[in-house]
Design a protein around this nucleic acid. Structure first.
Length: 619
DNA sequence: CTAGGGTTAG
C-alpha cells in the first residue's frame, strides 16, 4: 500500500484560512511578555513552553516567526504547530503548514507527521495519504508515529480493514507495534463493533501489557459484554497476567452500569482478597452506582469505609454523591455534602456546581441557582455549556423563557458554543410559551449554525406546532421526517396522532395508529391512551373498548389513565353498566378514580344522573 | 519537536 501511496504525491495546497487575532491582541501580547525586547524573542516563548498559549497568540507568534530572516529552525515551527494541534485546531495547523510551504520553509519528518495527523483527525485521509506520498518522495521514511497517526485516521473513518492491513504492513516493514498502535487499533475495532476481533488481537499479541488489555476490557464493558469481560479476566489470570487496580476499576464500573451491582461488590471483595488495594476511583465508581440505584445507605457506608481506610474521597466522589442526591430531589442532603467537602478542603469544580445549580432549578429556586452561578464565576470556575443548558432548562420550566433566551445570548458573548441540547430546550420552552414564531426562528438558526437537530428536536417541533393549532405545518415537517433517514420513534407518532385527534381528524389519527405495526414500531401505553382518547372524543366507544381489549391481549398494560378515560366516556354516554364494569376492573388492578373522574361523578350525582353507590365504588 | 488514550462525576 505504501508503495502505491508514494507515487501519488499531490501538491500540498489548500485554501488559506483567515488568520485570527488582530493588532490589538498582538500589541497586548507583546507588551505583556516582551516589553522592550525585539520580536526575535519568540525563542524565549518556545523555550518557556507553549502549553498554556492561546490560539490567537500562537497564530501571532507564527506571523512573527515568518517575518524573521533567516527563518527560525523547523524544530521551532514544529513546536508551534504541535501546540496548536494539541488545541485540536487542526485546520489552523494545516493552514499554517501551507503558508510555510509557500514561503519556502521546507517541512521535515516531524512537521509532516503533525500535518498528516491533522488531516487524519479532520477525516481527510486521502489528503493525509497524498502528503505521506509527497513526504516519502522527498526521502523521509515514515516512522511508527507517522504510521500510527494514519492508523488512527483509518480507525475513525470507515476503513477498519485498511487499519488492520496497515498494522500487518507495519510489522512487515520491521516496526514493532507498541502500546499506542495497539490501543488505537483496538479502539477502532470497538468503534466498528468488532469486539471479538479485539479480544483475539490482544490474545495473540506478543506484547502483553496491561494498558492494551485495559483498552479491550474497557471496550467490552462499555458495550455491556459482561460475560466476555469476565472470561477475559479469567484468561489473563491463567496466563499469569495479573490485572491491576485500573482493570478491576473498569470491570467494576462496567458491572455497575449494567445493573450487576452485586457482582460488582463481589469483584470488589475479590480484589481486596488478592491484595489489590481499591483506590479512590474504585470507591467513587461504586458509590455513584449505588446512588443511581437508590441504595443511599450502602453508598454512605462506602464513603465512611474509604475515609476509615485513609483512601481520601476527592471531588469526583463528592460530585457523584451530590449529583445523585440532587436528582432524587434531596437538595438538603446535597448541600450537606457540599459543606462537608469544603470542610475537607476539596475544591468543588464545574461538575459539582452544575449539579447544585440543577438542584435549585429542579425546585424552581432560580434566584439561588443564579447566585450559585455567580458564585462559581467568582471562584474562577467558568460556566460551560452544561451550566447554561441547566439554567436555561430551569427558566423554561418555570415559564420564564425570556430569561432563558437572555442566557442563550449571553453564551455567545462568553464564546460558549450552544449544542443540540441548548436549542432543544429553548425550542420546547418557546412553544410552551406559545411563541411559535420565535421557536421556528430558533430552529432555523440552529440549522444555519450547523448544530445538528436530532429526533428530539423534531419531536418538540411537531408537538409545539400541534399544540399551537398548526397541524398543517406539523404534517409538512412530519412528511419530511418520514422521507429522511431519521428513525422515528413512538413519541413522534403519538404526537402526530394526538395532533390529528385534537384537530378533529380522528380518522387520520386512527389510520396512522394502525400503520404502526407495519412500520415495525411498537405502540406504548401513551400511544394507546392517545388513540383511545381520540376515539372517545368522537363517541366511538366500541372502537375504544376494542382497543382496551387489544391492550390486555397483546399490548402494553393499561394504566390508571386508560381506565379513567374510558370510564368517563361511558358515563357521559349514559352507560352505567359499562362504567361500573370498568370501575370494577380498574379496582382489581389497584388503580383508583382520578380527579376528573371523581369530579364528573360528583356532578352527575348532583344533577341526579347517578346515585351515591357509584361514588363509593370509585374510592 | 511528531501518534493513541486502560478507571470515576454533569
Amino acid at each position: 500500500m505504501l508503495a502505491k501511496i508514494s507515487s501519488r504525491g499531490k501538491r500540498f495546497v489548500h485554501r488559506s484560512l483567515p488568520v485570527r487575532g488582530n493588532a490589538a491582541t498582538v500589541s497586548l501580547f507583546w507588551r505583556r511578555d516582551f516589553s522592550g525586547k525585539s520580536s526575535y524573542d519568540y525563542r524565549e516563548m518556545l523555550r518557556n513552553g507553549l502549553s498554556d498559549i492561546r490560539l490567537d497568540d500562537a497564530v501571532d507568534l507564527f506571523s512573527e516567526m515568518v517575518k524573521c530572516r533567516p527563518f527560525p529552525s523547523i524544530i521551532e515551527f514544529s513546536k508551534l504547530l504541535s501546540s496548536i494541534a494539541k488545541m485540536k485546531k487542526f485546520d489552523v495547523v494545516i493552514s499554517l503548514g501551507e503558508q510555510m510551504q509557500d514561503l519556502g520553509i521546507s517541512h521535515n519528518l516531524f512537521t509532516y507527521s503533525i500535518l498528516i495527523n491533522c488531516f487524519c483527525r479532520r477525516s481527510q485521509i486521502s489528503l493525509a495519504l497524498a502528503l505521506l506520498g509527497k513526504m516519502m518522495k522527498l526521502g523521509y521514511e515514515p516512522d511508527i508515529v507517522t504510521l500510527s497517526s494514519l492508523l488512527n485516521g483509518f480507525c475513525h473513518g470507515k476503513r477498519i480493514s485498511e487499519a488492520v492491513a496497515l498494522v500487518d504492513q507495519m510489522v512487515e516493514m520491521g516496526f514493532q507495534p507498541n502500546t499506542v498502535t495497539f490501543t488505537t487499533l483496538i479502539h477502532g475495532l470497538f468503534l466498528h463493533n468488532k469486539a471479538s476481533e479485539a479480544v483475539a488481537l490482544v490474545e495473540r499479541m506478543a506484547l502483553k501489557d496491561l494498558v492494551t488489555y485495559g483498552a479491550v476490557v474497557n471496550g467490552l464493558c462499555k458495550r455491556g459484554d459482561i460475560d466476555l469481560t469476565l472470561s477475559l479476566l479469567k484468561k489473563m489470570e491463567k496466563g499469569k497476567i495479573e490485572p491491576n487496580v485500573i482493570i478491576y476499576n473498569t470491570v467494576i464500573d462496567g458491572l455497575c452500569k449494567y445493573k450487576h451491582v452485586n457482582d460488582a461488590r463481589n469483584l470488589f471483595n475479590e480484589m481486596e482478597n488478592k491484595g489489590i488495594r481499591p483506590d479512590v476511583v474504585t470507591y467513587s465508581s461504586l458509590i455513584s452506582c449505588l446512588c443511581n440505584y437508590g441504595r443511599w445507605s450502602d453508598a454512605s457506608r462506602l464513603l465512611s469505609d474509604m475515609i476509615e481506610k485513609k483512601i481520601n474521597p476527592d471531588v469526583v466522589t463528592f460530585s457523584a454523591l451530590i449529583d445523585a442526591f440532587v436528582k432524587e430531589g434531596k437538595l438538603l442532603e446535597a448541600e450537606k455534602l457540599y459543606k462537608k467537602m469544603i470542610k475537607r478542603s476539596i475544591d468543588p469544580d464545574i461538575v459539582t456546581y452544575n449539579s447544585l445549580i440543577n438542584g435549585f432549578c429542579m425546585q424552581d429556586r432560580l434566584d439561588e441557582a443564579k447566585q450559585m452561578f455567580e458564585f462559581m464565576v467568582s471562584k474562577d470556575c467558568f460556566p460551560n455549556v452544561v451550566t447554561y443548558n441547566t439554567l436555561i432548562k430551569g427558566f423554561c420550566k418555570a415559564k420564564r423563557v425570556e430569561e432563558g433566551m437572555e442566557l442563550f445570548r449571553e453564551m455567545s458573548q462568553r464564546r460558549l458554543v450552544s449544542n443540540t441540547v441548548t436549542y432543544n430546550t429553548l425550542i420546547r420552552g418557546l412553544f410552551q410559551a406559545g411563541d411559535c414564531d420565535m421557536a421556528q426562528e430558533l430552529f432555523k438558526e440552529m440549522v444555519s449554525d450547523g448544530v445538528p437537530p436530532n429526533l428530539m428536536t423534531y419531536n418538540f417541533l411537531l408537538d409545539g406546532l400541534c399544540n399551537n393549532g398548526k397541524l398543517e405545518k406539523a404534517l409538512v415537517v412530519f412528511g419530511y421526517m418520514q422521507k429522511s433517514k431519521m428513525e422515528l420513534n413512538i413519541f413522534t407518532y403519538s404526537i402526530m396522532i394526538e395532533g390529528m385527534c385534537k384537530a378533529g381528524k380522528v380518522g387520520d389519527g386512527w389510520d396512522l395508529f394502525c400503520s404502526l405495526s407495519l412500520k415495525g414500531v411498537k405502540s406504548d401505553v401513551i400511544a394507546y391512551n392517545t388513540m383511545i382518547s381520540g376515539l372517545c372524543s368522537k363517541r366511538l366507544l366500541q372502537k375504544a373498548d376494542a382497543l382496551l381489549k387489544k391492550m390486555k391481549e397483546d399490548g402494553p398494560l393499561p394504566d390508571s389513565g386508560t381506565y379513567n378515560m374510558l370510564i368517563r366516556a361511558h358515563l357521559r354516554d349514559g352507560d352505567k353498566a359499562a362504567s361500573s364494569e370498568l370501575i370494577r376492573e380498574m379496582r382489581s388492578c389497584e388503580f383508583t378514580g382520578d380527579a376528573s373522574t371523581i369530579g364528573l361523578v360528583a356532578n352527575m350525582l348532583h344533577d341526579g344522573r347517578l346515585d351515591k353507590s357509584f361514588l363509593e365504588m370509585l374510592s
